[in-house]
Design a protein around this nucleic acid. Structure first.
Lengths: 200, 200
DNA sequence: TTGCCATGTTAGAGACACTAACATAAGTTA
DNA sequence: TAACTTATGTTAGTGTCTCTAACATGGCAA
């Protein structure tokens, strides 16, 4: 129904187009004009719905965090509270998300200064980490693991985030092309969770 | 000597200006026009020395890897081969480098597709990781640590890289503002190196 | 029906990367 | 020294981008 003067769903259409273009153009910044072409409107139309391009990116990023959180929930649902499989599942989702939508993943974390001021984005990001933290707290409680759960959660997040970044940016490929990233994470996480004894 | 028609040192002057602007403008892409203004030449002048803007970025990134490698060497020089302090020092340099020049750090690892095809950049990056790997190999040999040195090296790199990224992008600040990043890394690295016994 | 206002449009400003054509300076050779 | 060549600068201009201003359209309410 493009015959009408008014689009009707332009706001969401632009967000969708932006997300599509972000995925398509990888790291290279997408162009708002392209999104307009995709949505079939003029390049001035977005400014009736968003103050500027950054606001659209914020929407896409916030939606990304929502999706990631939902995937966390879906992936952990099968396991009982406190099970180590839940933590593994969260890590796998994190990595898979980065691989599937690398450019979006980068935008979600590698924020420009202006982006970080968006309250919704911040809240969504916090919620995601809160989910990880709760899993680790549960795990530590059930298994009487020594150490600060918060500290362990941050370490796991850091390891998985580093792995996701280095994977999608092709840095492992340059330096250790035969590396199995998921094995590396798995083994590293076990050590961070005190699951491997000191063997040295 | 700006009175002459020919600049004389324009190539290096542009690289320096680019590095300065990358640092100044943080994540936001710097403008080649700005670099020209800084160097006191017209916007067409760079194209006598570089095919395009990406080529200048490549030079800056390669120089960044060289600097990082030199800092590795300087920071480890005080400790004997195989000492754990050497590994700690490398990690500290990595993190400090990211904090000091966050935008450059991002460009060094978070490469655009075209960037990764530059042979010099790839070689410099490989050399940097090679340095880390050698330290871990030495350490494992001296301390008879169980496990694949390559795997441990990758895990340490991943942890420190994740910490550097999450620090400079302000993600820790949003979620765990009181976190001491260096303590977190230190403790995590000990676990990855089998230096902490299983306590659970 | 009439008027309002949300949401489109076209036209254009100002910035950017990059190109084409021209200008100058600095060697190089006769 | 004079003339030719080449390296390295210039100005002018193209096409693209974000965003703004002024105008157009059409749905909705009084």
């Amino acid at each position: 129904m493009k015959t009408t003067y008014h689009h009707g769903e332009l706001r969401q259409a632009l967000i969708d187009a932006a997300r599509h273009l972000i995925a398509e153009r990888q790291g290279n910044d997408f162009s708002l004009s392209d999104a307009c072409r995709r949505a079939g409107v003029s390049t001035a139309a977005p400014y009736r719905h968003f103050p500027d391009k950054t606001a659209i990116i914020n929407e896409v990023v916030a939606q990304g965090f929502t999706d990631m959180g939902n995937q966390f929930r879906a992936a952990t649902a099968a396991f009982p509270a406190g099970a180590p499989d839940r933590i593994v599942a969260v890590g796998q989702v994190y990595l898979a998300f980065a691989i599937q939508e690398p450019a979006l993943f980068r935008m979600m974390f590698s924020q420009k200064p202006n982006l970080s001021e968006d309250d919704i984005v911040t809240a969504q990001g916090r919620a995601c980490f809160g989910y990880v933290l709760q899993e680790v707290i549960d795990y530590c409680a059930f298994h009487r693991v020594a150490g600060d759960a918060m500290m362990i959660a941050v370490q796991l997040w850091t390891l998985v985030h580093g792995a996701a970044s280095l994977t999608i940016d092709g840095d492992y490929a340059k330096v250790a092309p035969d590396l199995s990233v998921s094995t590396m994470i798995q083994e590293g996480a076990q050590k961070l969770l005190f699951l491997l004894p000191m063997r040295g």
